[in-house]
Nucleic acid binder design. Sequence first.
DNA 1: TATGAATGAGCCTTCATTCAT
DNA 2: GATGAATGAAGGCTCATTCAT
Lengths: 208, 208, 208, 208
Amino acid sequence: MKTAVSPRKAPRQARSQATVTAILDAAARVLVERGYAAANTNLVAERAGVSVGSLYQYFPNKDALITALHDRHSRQMDEVMDRAFALSQDLPFDEALQLIIEGVVEAHRVEAGLHRVLETQLAGLDMLSSHEETEARIAEQMGCLLARYPDQVRVPNLRLAVYMLMHALHALVHAVVATRPSGVSLKTATQEIVRMTRLYLSSPPTGG
Amino acid sequence: MKTAVSPRKAPRQARSQATVTAILDAAARVLVERGYAAANTNLVAERAGVSVGSLYQYFPNKDALITALHDRHSRQMDEVMDRAFALSQDLPFDEALQLIIEGVVEAHRVEAGLHRVLETQLAGLDMLSSHEETEARIAEQMGCLLARYPDQVRVPNLRLAVYMLMHALHALVHAVVATRPSGVSLKTATQEIVRMTRLYLSSPPTGG
Amino acid sequence: MKTAVSPRKAPRQARSQATVTAILDAAARVLVERGYAAANTNLVAERAGVSVGSLYQYFPNKDALITALHDRHSRQMDEVMDRAFALSQDLPFDEALQLIIEGVVEAHRVEAGLHRVLETQLAGLDMLSSHEETEARIAEQMGCLLARYPDQVRVPNLRLAVYMLMHALHALVHAVVATRPSGVSLKTATQEIVRMTRLYLSSPPTGG
Amino acid sequence: MKTAVSPRKAPRQARSQATVTAILDAAARVLVERGYAAANTNLVAERAGVSVGSLYQYFPNKDALITALHDRHSRQMDEVMDRAFALSQDLPFDEALQLIIEGVVEAHRVEAGLHRVLETQLAGLDMLSSHEETEARIAEQMGCLLARYPDQVRVPNLRLAVYMLMHALHALVHAVVATRPSGVSLKTATQEIVRMTRLYLSSPPTGG
DNA sequence: TATGAATGAGCCTTCATTCAT
DNA sequence: GATGAATGAAGGCTCATTCAT
């Protein structure tokens, strides 16, 4: 499942691919609109314009569908992040930081609702493995990034700093994308996240 | 209904109170174990050691039960926070900050799992009002706190700073309570949150 | 049960009697307001101002309660009818007829709603026996009445005539009490019932 | 939904139609046997030889099922009545009257039990509208009929007469179909209804 | 393969009835 | 006797899943 499709010999596969995509899209919409509890496979199939039977042809059960949706979403996010990290490669610290954070915000803006639902309502499902993988990979990249700027990044414990940033950034980006204090633009808010991050990273452990 | 009970001749009420408490406790456990969607009233009743009928004697429906649980939890959190804010009243900035953050961590340590589920899976229910109230009240107190230390708190926009802290602290506290990088104690992690907060608040807007 | 209470030594009994009456009254009200399906013993008890426990002290189960209510209602109706038949004893045919029919209308006006519900929704219960008895007794009396006026009552088959009248009058009285064509008073409508009855009874079997 | 099916390629629809019919038939049976309160959808489904799920595929809820049953029954009755009224068009008064009343009796003979339950236990449901419509239409037709014979029909108030007949006939037909005095055939009883009706309609208001 | 009617386990809720106080 | 909290069987309804066409 979920294996890449070889470019040639697409006719059959193309149909399947389109159907799978339609189903996942419908699932995303339904999930965002009604939450996991109220989302049901019949509705997803209807919204996707296919029969329930077809849905079950491609996904053995409801959880598999949600998992697949989650995986697809993760992959999309990963790509954005990878691109951001790649671009930041040769930039000075401040610019790299800004680029990365703006990238994350951008990544979350696309499907903020879906992202939230997936993260939120799916705590109980067994799909965490892939999610944690992703998290770990991003943490890894983040660690590498920080390690590249020993002069600006002066934290007592790099692993701890990465951990702090992962969680703080995650929450702030979500918040900033969803809602901001009145009169504050997304750009300004994003800038403030950058500022907080820079302050945190570039101050020596001891106040002295 | 659940108003204060007169001290003498409490047996009847005491029994009811105990039942209500047992139900709420069971609901909390079930919710944490299985999430909202998979939690069902029959199971909650069974776990509470009462019949479904009793459950419905005290809570008109499933949502009301969850809402009541949420309210109870909120009240408990509020008390902890209020206490922390009160104690921090006459302390110097650094100590006040530390006290507050340790208070929040402490508040979350009690029922972290429940807290997460309630926050997470209940987005759809109509109980948000009380939740948002609580949030607003805490934000208000936070704002007052920061305003008390104009010398140490140098942020360009106080409302924005409060907003940033609310979200970042929230996430970090949750994270820290649930899991930490190996080798990092809860105390150390909490300290790091304090450090991040202090750095963020006490640096002038412009690097200069 | 339901046995007459001896006049002396009433204190205890009086209390019970009052409670039973209150319960039956409440049951009547609830039944009229919500119908049999939606009526429930807890509500009846509450409306009667007693506990469910007390209700079950006097009535072994819900059906017994309804049956008792039905019996009480029947008895009240019977009394009215008996009185009407007694008064009509020495009157000429037309006046006797009018008196009886007005009596029936009057009897139904008091608790028309209850009467309807009892008749209607209780078809399935096993309380019909007493109901059929009452019906039979009234039919009997009606037969006697008609037999008293051989000159005016010229029907081919007396039993059939009684049967016809029982059913037609029943329906018409119900209808007339509940609703009438606009502009028609209860008195006028009652008069028309009398007219129909007289015409039916006093015409010779063959048109000749 | 239940609109006419194109003759060719009906298999799908035919199946559904059959299922719907089976459900309605089962509902009718259960309703007659146990009354509305004791009738439950699970039993209806079982009796119909389908699953509850199927029942709810065709009827959104219990009341809708009963309403549909009521509608189907009404439609059947209407057809019989319409036919009777149509046939009576050019007949002399006595024959027209006889035809109509025999028609009503015939209409009720088919599903007398169901008819009674539907009329009886369903006062509370919102299906009255259609029922009252039917009643009004029949009253209308009855009025027209009577108006066609000004020589034989001599009543003081046509609307009142129609009202009287609607109620009396209704009750008598029900009675006659369900049970009769011993020794009286359905035919004889029906004849007696005709006789009563004729006497009522053709006598001048005042005895003179 | 696609379809969608059919299935039925399971959930929320009610209410007649019991019983400890 | 009176009370009313507690009980739990039963009923309405949903929805993940299957399978005949």
